[in-house]
Nucleic acid binder design. Sequence first.
DNA 1: CTGAAAGCGCTTACAG
DNA 2: CTGAAAGCGCTTACAG
Lengths: 336, 336
Amino acid sequence: MSKRVSLKDIAENVGVSIALVSYVMNGQEKQKRVGADVVERIREVARELNYKPNQIAQSLRTGSTKTIGLIVGDISNPFFGNIARVIEDEAIKHGYTVIFGSADEDLHKSASLVETLINRQVDGFIIAPAEGTSLQIKALQEKKTPLVLIDRYFDEVPTNYVVLNNFDASYDAITHLIGNGYRRIGMIAYQSTLIHMQERIRGYKEAMSDNNLKNAIRIEEVRYDYINSDMEKAMHKLMDGKNKIDALFFATNALTISGLYLIKKLNLKIPEDLAIIGFDGNAAFDFFSTPLSYIEQPIEEMGVEAVRVLVEQIDGSDEIANIQLRHTLIKRGSSL
Amino acid sequence: MSKRVSLKDIAENVGVSIALVSYVMNGQEKQKRVGADVVERIREVARELNYKPNQIAQSLRTGSTKTIGLIVGDISNPFFGNIARVIEDEAIKHGYTVIFGSADEDLHKSASLVETLINRQVDGFIIAPAEGTSLQIKALQEKKTPLVLIDRYFDEVPTNYVVLNNFDASYDAITHLIGNGYRRIGMIAYQSTLIHMQERIRGYKEAMSDNNLKNAIRIEEVRYDYINSDMEKAMHKLMDGKNKIDALFFATNALTISGLYLIKKLNLKIPEDLAIIGFDGNAAFDFFSTPLSYIEQPIEEMGVEAVRVLVEQIDGSDEIANIQLRHTLIKRGSSL
DNA sequence: CTGAAAGCGCTTACAG
DNA sequence: CTGAAAGCGCTTACAG
């Protein structure tokens, strides 16, 4: 790359000190009472030479990089891709850029990403924390690193977070199914101790209990790394035999898609053979044999709030923000 | 954030100069002939204090940030989300992190992103250039900024690029349709002068001409910012009247999805009323009433190659790499 | 074998 | 109104 123009180049060209140029470039010419003619000449030369401040130098000096570290499960997952997009837009509005990484729901990848981003001096983090990373998060928190969790959080580590009210979302979905006459309602969730998953499960269970269906509760758990094979086993458990379910609630977008492939393969009629409610909107849900009912997350709001809270933290606020957003239950043919 | 540990802290603790600590931390203790005992003590104290180098300071000094700037159309678009994921993984393998931005196929957003990333001193760029940005790209190229274009490039600006052989892909799709007996084959593309779009159109036209169907060529163009309304008009033009098409080729993933919504609404039977070939794989294609045939791009390879070429450029290579990758035509029910 | 020193490009308290 | 100087944390050519 060709040599960049520095404050020094402008200073030499105009014949003043670097300090004066810095003042003018930072709009401090009033407070510093820089002579009007000098201001004029500095501005002119800066424009001519096309001066752009070296942010690295600024960062080293000021300690602020105007950079946000975003760690999600997988940027190619539509939920995370969409929220990344919102976060990016909001970050730019606040003068920040985004460095991102995918942790693949893996403890070690997450640790490595956090370290990498810390070494790059990001001003703060937005993280969808992987299972078992509560100590990593706690360490960040103890170092007073500005931090906002999204999608999940840890009960035992008080942090800022912006999440869906997952309990309500699940409860609402199950209540809707019950209202439409279904009773043998199953759920397929990830095997995970993470709070968003536990809350979705709790919402299901409580809705069932509250409707005297406690004995009909049937949950199958699927491992993240073996989603398709585990899904197949789970579906068979729920659908085989005389005790088979008549409705099924999927706990995430990826689980829904994986399940739909199987349902298509098994040639099940929806909702006659099986009613379904999925998670997160998706073109695939629209094109399925019967359009899918699903829980819609307010992704835009989640991203906007996450950036807002983070920037407040970076700017020095120490109020902890715990934000729960509301879902929308999109009711369509699959749960009629 | 709490104070970080610096080389100085270690130096004071051990009672040696900062230079020595730097040598040891950078594994130069052999060349610099640092005393074995000193090396030992420095390592020990560094570990105790949990020293992590300040990358900002390193960057300012060395001029290298070990950062890649990635500019795509929209990170929430599955094609770009998937390729971003691959690029991220590859970048990490090479010791780089990724700063990304979505340009929304907009000239000005693109310019603003490029400037932001340059000010952040990224070591190089991977860009899916928006229409009309050839001057931006040319400017980067002239400043010798390491750069690799993906998905598209500009004929008039010689740069590295990694793209699909779009002509072949289109040609193959159309030939397949013709082979299956379709003759009145239409195409819906973006209104764009970008080369990937022009090549896809050229492939369509040439396949038609080569099969004596030049007179049946019918292309409708849709604006990126008005995709759904323009799609509706385009479909009506192609499907209304006695001259209506019997097969339709969509030029991108987003166009395919938009078209499918309409096809579903119009209740067209696929492939009886209309045969279809789409672009880029997608769960939605699998769940459509008839599984969709489509052109699959080698996204993994595209990302891997882009990073490889970029890192070579950053490391000083000045060979220009122009890489065209091959598609796979996935044949299914929609084009039978 | 080790250290003093310059310098990357910037900001800012201080002096005049 | 203006400038000399320190310092952010690092690397590295140079001297001894």
